[in-house]
Amino acid sequence: MKIQLKKGTLDMCVLALLARKDSYSYEIASNLAQGMDVSEGTIYPLMRRLQNESWVSTYLVESSSGPARKYYRLTPEGQRELASMRQEWREFVTEVESVLNAQTTGSATGLDEEVQK
């Protein structure tokens, strides 16, 4: 269950991170690892996929202390994608919660009926 949920939302999380500020892969990996149980190894292939989808673009920043860093930036397409993903996510959460709550009330009512009998 958790794997299935994570699969769909990882893209959204990365896009959300990049919406806040441009970032490089190690920073993205560490930020994600703080909040979620994500394997570091998945981040790079994922970044390439987001690039293929044209949701993110890259630019290089020279560094004095080591190799140039590749920064990822959200493209306008990526922003639109993120907005629709957020929308879908909210709807999904609302649906799931309504079902969960209805089940509670449902079984409660069922129990009431039992008691009444």
């Binding site: 892969s25 570091e40 190894g41 790079y44 202390s65 080591g66 190799p67 140039a68 860093r69």
Partner: peptide
Amino acid sequence: SDYTEYFHDALSDGRSEQEIAAAL
């Protein structure tokens, strides 16, 4: 070069090469 960059960043973060390679 992307992975070299990743190793560089992770090493500056105080992790060992072996640790990073295993995580990747």
